[in-house]
Simulated scan of single mutants.
Amino acid sequence: MTRLPPVPYEEWDEEVLRPLTGGRKIPPSNALGLLLNHPRLAKAFLGFSTPLVYRGTLPARIRELAVLRVAWRRRCRYEWSHHALSARRAGVTDEELAGVRRGDPTLVTRAVDELEDTSTLSDPTYAELAALLDERQLMEFVFTVGAYAMQAMVYNAFGVEPDEGMDDGGMPAAPKATPHTKPGTGPHTNSGTSPHTAPVTIPGTTPDAPSDTAPGTTPDAANPAHP
């Protein structure tokens, strides 16, 4: 359930959205409608996220697989629904999408899980990434995981629903948060797990395994309304 109503489409400030749209007309988006409640924040954030995603050097397949792993771990239905489309356009197969949900130990999944669990990368995983990516791509990979983890937190906290007609892949709802009554206590304390990493089984999949765009491109014309 949406906690902060999105700004109505007819009231959107096109100048605020210009870092994403370049002045183009784009369809309604629950995420952008939420962001537009805070125009200065929206413009600053889009100025960061748009070049990272649409004018970066990280290969699109790797980027989308990383974003989807973040979305699945954090049970962010909005993020999954948009990036599953982008991933398919980047050549990601249905079996690979299922592997993201299962937690198959691919390099991308292992790297995302390490970043999410520990806020760093192990030496072996870093070495594998460095053998695949150049320095700028490696930086973009870590920034992408962090940026979409933040977005997942925002969309879940404010109850942003997938846009009309978007498929969330049968994702279960994010776990309900519980109040933290004392400093240093709560579901994230010394447990090694957190609500967004809890295994969940959906039809046709198995629970997650334990964790162990080229320059000059523009947002996907069929899916432009997600930062």
Rank of each mutant, 00 (worst) to 15 (best):
M1C: 00
E15P: 05
L17Y: 05
P19H: 04
K25P: 04
I26G: 03
P27A: 06
P27W: 09
P28W: 08
N30K: 06
A31V: 15
G33Y: 01
G33E: 01
L34S: 04
L41H: 14
K43H: 13
F45L: 12
L46T: 13
L52S: 02
V53M: 11
Y54N: 15
G56T: 08
P59R: 02
R63Y: 09
E64H: 08
V67W: 05
L68F: 03
L68E: 03
R69S: 04
R73L: 15
R73F: 06
R75K: 14
R77V: 00
E79H: 03
H82L: 06
R88A: 09
A90Q: 04
T93V: 04
A98G: 13
R101P: 05
R101C: 07
R101T: 10
T106S: 09
T106P: 03
T106H: 02
L107K: 08
D113R: 01
D113N: 02
E114H: 06
L129K: 03
A131W: 11
L133A: 07
E135S: 14
M139H: 14
M139E: 15
F141A: 11
F141R: 12
G146T: 09
A147F: 12
A152L: 03
A152V: 01
F158R: 00
F158E: 00
F158I: 02
D163N: 00
G165H: 01
M166N: 10
D167G: 00
D167P: 00
M171Y: 05
M171T: 09
M171H: 09
A173L: 07
A174R: 07
T189W: 13
N190M: 14
S191G: 15
S194E: 12
P195H: 12
P199V: 06
T201C: 10
T201A: 13
G204R: 08
P207H: 09
D208Y: 14
S211I: 03
P215G: 04
P215T: 04
T217L: 14
T217K: 15
D220I: 10
A225Y: 11
